[in-house]
Amino acid sequence: MIKTDKWMIWAFVGPTVLLLAVMMYYPMIGTLIESFYSTSFINPKPEFVGFSLYNKIFSSGNFGIVVRNSLAWTIGVVFLQNLIGFGVALLLNQRLPGQGIMRALILLPWILPGVVAAILWRFMYDPQLGIINSFLIGTGLSNTGIAWLAQESTAMIAVIIAAVWKGFPFSTLVFLAALQNVDREQIEAATVDGASALRRLFDVVLPAMRKVIVVNVILTTILTFNYFDMIWILTRGGPRDATHIFPTKIYQVGFGQFRFGEAATYGVLSVLMLSVLVAFYFIAQGSGRNKRAKA
């Protein structure tokens, strides 16, 4: 442990604490309070209603759908985004020809403004005009094309694919940076010992990157859970409620229907659910460490 002065810690952490307290916690505490009041745009004199907004949401039948969708969306995007992101990072770390340009090109989806990316994908999924169905019909994989975003059975997977396309470069970037910290001598030693590439990956690279992978999975979980633009523009939570997640619900109830109190309640529930999800990861991380030790 390094010896240090308290003043340095506070000087280093202070700006962060101040900003988050004022800009995030103060408003969020306001939201928490609001969730106990019947606040709405057309009711400027709200009354204290206790847990009745919570009861209303729990008994509406919508809540279960939103929870289920949020889970499917978050887990689907996080899993695919990090898997693909890691694979691409490994590829880009191989010193292959043209990899410099590739590193820049591969970041393109992530650079594209979110609103535009969503509009682009909505257009690509268009049942008649979209390039995806043109491809399917052209290759004979489908006769009439598939209305990806208009069927309850395919809408969720379609929005997940679009989000993964948009988000995987972030994971690639993080993993690529982390790969530089993997000890090359250890890899070379393993190579000399005759370990296959796969062995080296599992025995040397993955353990060395464990911390970064865990942090990134947690991070992308949080970012994905609250990712609003993509679904809002692609489907507005439809068809019916097939892609409604917490952020789209909060926006729709609050800004679409002027019911601020209920939107606040959804906001509080959203934070609670995400906390549970993240806590679950932390626990899984602990048991994952044991499993890996056995392997």
Binding site: Q128, G145, L149, A150, Q151, T235, P239
Partner: peptide, 14 residues
Amino acid sequence: PNGILNASSGDMRE
């Protein structure tokens, strides 16, 4: 055309 549930009047323009 199929896809009614996610089609808007603007989508029909093209």
